Simulated scan of single mutants.
Amino acid sequence: MSLPFHLIFVQLEDKFYLTVPQHIYTPSVTIQTKIARSQYCPHIRESFNQTLIANPILRRIKYYHLACIKDSNLLYFHRSLLAITDWFHACAALERLVTVIADVKFNLAKSKTMAKLLIIVISLFTCVSFLHDSIHRYLIDDDEEQRTWHMVHFTPSIGICNSFINIFHSIVPFRLKLMSAMSTSVLVQKDVYQLRNKTRIWNI
């Protein structure tokens, strides 16, 4: 019996790669992936200079985010970024629905203003919702293998909350996109039907 998992790390020689981030565990699924540079998990000694590495762990941990800023290709923030992308797609689907409903009354200027506001709100909301993840992560220095391990440990209550957040960020945007697509299709078909009826009346 296989155990549920969310991340797959692959070790090639002395290097580790985060190959598969799986937010919602799917049993009995065949996973195929390729190893790319962006999946590489560098050792702390590769990301910082010797002066910073020489600091105690509680002091140097404050600078770990600099590695993510320095190299934007790293997958450190894959959970937040994927969730934000899903929400953006859902908002785009809702905008298409509003466009169909409003028709000629659709205000492009207001739509652009709302889009800018939603980008800020969604980004902040998603990052804050995953804030607990970074709080419960910690580093362990492995003197035997001469590397630092990145660990995460949730209490049962935080684990339940984390699962709910992941499910929420996956299901809600998906349902919004599905409902928007179905509603848009129905409204477009309705408009086409009404237009055909008007055309028939004019021909008569």
Rank of each mutant, 00 (worst) to 15 (best):
M1D: 00
L3C: 10
F5I: 03
F5T: 03
Q11K: 04
K15E: 11
V20W: 06
T26V: 15
P27M: 09
T30Q: 06
T33V: 09
K34W: 05
P42E: 04
S47R: 03
F48Q: 06
P56K: 01
I57C: 06
K62W: 13
Y64K: 04
A67P: 03
D71G: 02
S72Q: 14
H78A: 07
R79I: 10
R79G: 04
L82C: 10
L82H: 15
D86S: 08
H89A: 14
H89E: 15
A90Q: 01
E95Y: 04
V100S: 04
D103V: 00
D103M: 02
K105C: 08
A109Q: 10
S111I: 00
T113G: 13
A115M: 07
L118N: 13
S123P: 04
L124S: 15
S129D: 01
H132Q: 14
S134T: 13
H136V: 14
R137E: 14
Y138D: 05
I140W: 07
Q146W: 09
W149E: 11
M151Q: 01
V152K: 03
F154C: 09
N162Q: 13
N162R: 10
S163R: 07
F164Y: 07
I165T: 07
S170K: 08
S170V: 04
L176Y: 11
K177M: 13
K177S: 06
L178R: 11
S180G: 06
S185I: 06
V186N: 06
L187D: 01
V188I: 14
Q194P: 07
R196P: 05
R196W: 08
R196F: 07
K198W: 03
T199S: 13
I201T: 08
